[in-house]
Computed example of a mutant assay.
Amino acid sequence: MNRPPKIPQSVLVVIHTPDLHVLLIERADAPGFWQSVTGAKDFAEETWGQTAAREVAEETGLDAHAPGHRLRDWGLENVYEIYPQWRHRYAPGVTHNTERLFGLCVPAPLPVRLNPREHTAQGWWPWAQAAERCFSPSNAEAILWLPRLGGMMV
């Protein structure tokens, strides 16, 4: 069965606590690749916020809209070149992706339910350690924004 090409619009959701502990998950297809929640829009009309909430649920089992959780669109975007090994997922000629940044503040480090086809491990780290652990420079940079975002987080 052929899958339709991925839409080159995705979200990055930094899940964190008020004291700036950050959840990272390790990719199943790239051991050692630690990241925040990421994922592409399922269809062009899906809003950024819908994509963020769906990806959080799919990758962690967390409800972004549960009481005590605050999903925030940071109003920031990255445009980056898609790694060559993943370009086959997109339409021919697509080489760049637009990534919208979100934060999800949860009251405390929570247990998560990983999809074993996508991720194999999870952990909560203080923000600076989490940023160092990330494979993706744009993900590390997003985590480094946490202390500067102040009131947007909670």
Rank of each mutant, 00 (worst) to 15 (best):
Q129K: 06
D19W: 09
G75E: 05
V11P: 03
M1V: 14
N115L: 06
N2W: 08
L23T: 03
T95K: 13
G75H: 03
N2C: 08
D73G: 07
V14K: 02
Q35K: 09
P137R: 12
H21D: 09
V56C: 07
P5V: 11
E77G: 11
T17N: 09
L110Y: 01
P5G: 05
A128S: 08
P84Y: 07
H69L: 06
G151D: 13
W74K: 13
W48R: 01
R148W: 07
N139W: 09
F33V: 01
A44R: 13
W74F: 11
Q129E: 13
H16V: 06
A128E: 11
E46Q: 15
T120Q: 10
V112P: 11
A142L: 01
R133E: 04
D42Q: 15
W145N: 10
V11F: 07
F102L: 03
D73W: 10
A30T: 13
R148L: 13
M152K: 11
V14D: 02
I25P: 02
V94I: 15
K6I: 02
E45I: 12
R3H: 12
Q122G: 12
V79A: 09
Y90K: 04
H21G: 05
E81D: 14
P31W: 00
R89F: 08
E77I: 08
W86L: 13
W145M: 15
T17R: 06
D63K: 12
P18A: 02
L110K: 14
L114I: 00
E77M: 10
L62R: 13
R87K: 11
I82P: 04
G39R: 04
L110S: 01
I25F: 05
V56L: 09
R113A: 12
V22C: 07
R3I: 07
H69Y: 02
A121M: 10
R70Q: 10
Y80A: 15
S138R: 15
Q35I: 04
L114A: 05
D73M: 06
H88W: 08
R117P: 00
E45T: 15
G68M: 04
A52K: 09
G75W: 04
Y83M: 11
L114C: 02
R113M: 08
S10C: 07
L24P: 00
G93R: 05
V79E: 11
G103L: 03
V37W: 02
E26G: 03
P8A: 14
A91N: 10
P67A: 09
A28G: 03
M153Y: 12
A121C: 09
K41R: 14
A40S: 12
V13M: 05
W145H: 15
Y90G: 03
N97D: 10
S10E: 12
R27E: 11
L23K: 04
E132Y: 07
F135Q: 11
P111Y: 02
I143W: 02
R54E: 00
P147T: 01
P107M: 04
L20G: 02
P8N: 14
R27V: 01
E77Q: 15
A44T: 11
R70L: 09
A44Y: 09
R113P: 06
V79R: 14
Y90S: 00
P92Q: 08
P67M: 07
L76H: 10
G39H: 00
H16C: 14
P116C: 07
E132N: 14
A53K: 01
R148K: 14
G150C: 01
A108E: 11
N97P: 02
E59V: 09
N2F: 08
R72I: 05
A142G: 03
R70K: 12
G61P: 03
Q35L: 12
L146E: 00
